[in-house]
């Protein structure tokens, strides 16, 4: 009986969090309108969310591209089609690795910081005191961070893919001796702007929305203790990773399943 009660309590807790999360999303979206009148607020957040994630994204993109160059070459050279390396590198980056790896890195680099910052604001009652002064924390604190996250994710993913393609070029053409002209020509012949690049951008927009939503909500929904903040930060990273990978499966099925 106690086990059954525990199960019920857990499920009600999950449902409650889900409901709070959606109400939170709604209130944040409503607060986005007045935010546009004060661009200073979200430009500042764009700096801490986007600019400061730049280094890890660029370095990871370069290395992922270089590894793809090596692995793709090793597989393709057996079939005598090493020229297709450009296609392999570009398609894997633009369709999958760009959006997904960027979202995972984003969760670790920016999402956890967002949760910890907002959670600590709540634990030290800064959010409540804002409400006391008739400052809406949704407009002042949450919406700018949310907007900056959604805006920076597609830009970061595009940078990741572009740097990755360059990394694949470095290894494929520079080290392994694939023909430079064939690398670019095969790539351009087989990567489609709408089917591949645009779908990748749509993916990263969706991941941006989900990753920032989870990060900001976990911060806002924190138990206002030191332990609570630490738990919320962990949850942000874990939940974002799971949500992004599951969503990626669904989006890939929708976008490329019919091809």
């Amino acid at each position: 009986m106690t086990a059954l009660q525990a199960l019920g309590r857990w499920w009600l807790g999950v449902l409650g969090r889900l409901g709070r999360g959606h109400l939170f999303l709604l209130r944040t979206l409503v607060a986005l309108g007045p935010l546009m009148l004060r661009p200073r607020l979200w430009i500042r957040e764009l700096y801490s969310v986007g600019v400061r994630s730049l280094l890890i994204i660029l370095v990871s993109g370069l290395f992922v591209g270089m590894v793809l160059g090596y692995q793709g070459y090793i597989t393709l050279v057996d079939f005598g089609s090493a020229e297709a390396l450009g296609t392999v590198v570009a398609l894997s980056l633009v369709r999958e690795l760009g959006p997904v790896v960027t979202a995972l890195l984003f969760a670790g680099r920016a999402g956890s910081a967002l949760t910890a910052e907002i959670g600590l604001m709540k634990a030290t009652e800064q959010l409540s005191s804002m409400e006391m002064m008739a400052v809406d924390p949704y407009r002042r604190v949450l919406a700018p961070r949310f907007f900056a996250g959604i805006l920076s994710m597609p830009l970061l993913a595009a940078l990741f893919s572009a740097v990755g393609v360059a990394g694949g070029y470095l290894v494929g053409v520079g080290v392994l001796g694939v023909d430079a002209g064939a690398y670019w020509a095969q790539m351009q012949a087989n990567v489609d702007v709408f089917d591949d690049v645009l779908n990748g951008v749509i993916k990263s927009l969706v991941f941006g929305l989900v990753a920032t939503w989870i990060a900001v909500f976990e911060g806002y929904d924190t138990e206002p203790t030191a332990e609570g903040v630490s738990r919320a930060t962990t949850r942000t990273v874990v939940h974002t990773a799971l949500a992004v990978l599951a969503l990626d499966f669904i989006l890939t099925g929708l976008m490329f399943g019919a091809l």
Binding site: R40, A90, L155, L156, M187, V191, D192, V197, V201
Partner: peptide, 30 residues
């Protein structure tokens, strides 16, 4: 604030530049 705005501008320009590279150099927009 000046430094923040400059780097954010640079970040956005870089990101949009990367999108253009993907569209023009990597894929078949042309």
């Amino acid at each position: 604030t000046r430094w923040i705005e400059i780097t954010v501008g640079l970040f956005v320009a870089l990101g949009i530049g990367a999108l253009f590279v993907l569209a023009l150099k990597v894929s078949n927009l042309s």
